[in-house]
């Protein structure tokens, strides 16, 4: 059994004392080395979850445990060492005047010695494929490159959990693809849990576990396959389903019986040729 890394125990959160609850009695667990996608439409509370994990916000009710430590004002500096976060806007999280300065920023904050910094800058920039840009200024980089730098700067402090808070939302398809590739490659190499908060359904399919948020509550939880089998319910809460799911549905309506729920193109292809050879 894998170790628990993040545990939400009946967590509720709201910004104002008399405002509406943004999160309402949420409980879930994320394990070590697991990749989890959190989906839901705007205002469903998914970004709030990310900020709670990092101690950028504190819950009014309930408890959040990161690696066994409760998140509170005393522990946040330790917890931020374990939880790295990449935000949506590539420009607004770039602190340094050059790529290497930006990667160094998080390490400088933690008082890491200079020689160690140089080494880790080299390593992490290589890991995200940005070592050739190490002296570039941010305005000479594309959005996708800036996000890769942001990921490198989080990796530099070797966190146990990497949160991508809609990190690909502002990128073009090419940039998005490169980020997804980088992230899944890193996830395979290192012992690190991954939480991606996203609208992108392709990203969701790559996760091991999916949490669907709706109006501040956990609406469903499960593997991508379990989740996307419930198509009708999905439409009801206003979420889209992946293209393959839509195609399967259309094929069923056209009397092509597909029993298994295909998740990607290969599985759909598999289902189609088995159907074809049967008839």
């Amino acid at each position: 059994m894998r170790q628990k890394l993040v545990e939400f125990r009946n967590v509720s959160f709201r910004y104002d004392d008399d405002g509406p609850w943004i999160l309402n009695d949420c409980s879930f667990t994320i394990y070590e080395n697991q990749s989890v996608a959190i989906i839901g439409h705007n205002g469903s509370g998914k970004s709030t979850i990310a900020k709670l994990m990092n101690g950028l916000l504190f819950p009014q009710k309930g408890q959040i445990l990161i690696d066994g430590k409760e998140v509170n004002a005393q522990t946040i500096w330790d917890i931020r060492k374990d939880v790295g976060m990449v935000f949506q806007n590539p420009d607004n999280q770039f602190v340094g005047t050059t790529v290497q300065d930006d990667v160094a920023f998080g390490m400088e904050n933690r008082g890491i010695a200079r020689e160690e910094m140089m080494k880790r800058i080299e390593d992490t920039l290589t890991a995200v494929g940005m070592q050739h840009k190490r002296l570039s200024e941010p305005h000479r980089l594309s959005g996708g490159q800036k996000q890769r730098v942001a990921i490198a700067s989080v990796l530099a402090i070797s966190p146990k959990l990497l949160i991508l808070d809609e990190a690909t939302a502002m990128l073009d398809p090419k940039g998005r693809q490169s980020i997804m590739k980088t992230v899944s490659h890193l996830h395979e190499q290192d012992v690190m849990s991954l939480v991606s908060i996203t609208h992108d359904l392709e990203e969701v399919m790559m996760a091991e576990w999916v949490i669907v948020m709706n109006q501040g509550e956990i609406w469903a939880e499960g593997t991508p396959r379990d989740i996307f089998t419930r198509k009708d319910a999905f439409h009801k809460i206003g979420l889209d389903i992946p293209f393959v799911g839509k195609l399967t549905e259309a094929l069923r309506r056209a009397d092509v019986s597909i029993t298994e729920e295909p998740l990607n193109h290969e599985e759909l292809l598999e289902a189609l040729w088995t159907f074809h050879s049967k008839t």
Partner: peptide, 21 residues
């Protein structure tokens, strides 16, 4: 946004900081 990102990356003022440059 920047303030949030800096905080998330552990910025807590000049005390105990090292410098790359």
């Amino acid at each position: 946004d920047l303030a949030m990102a800096m905080e998330a990356r552990g910025y807590q003022g000049g005390e105990g900081r090292t410098k790359l440059r």
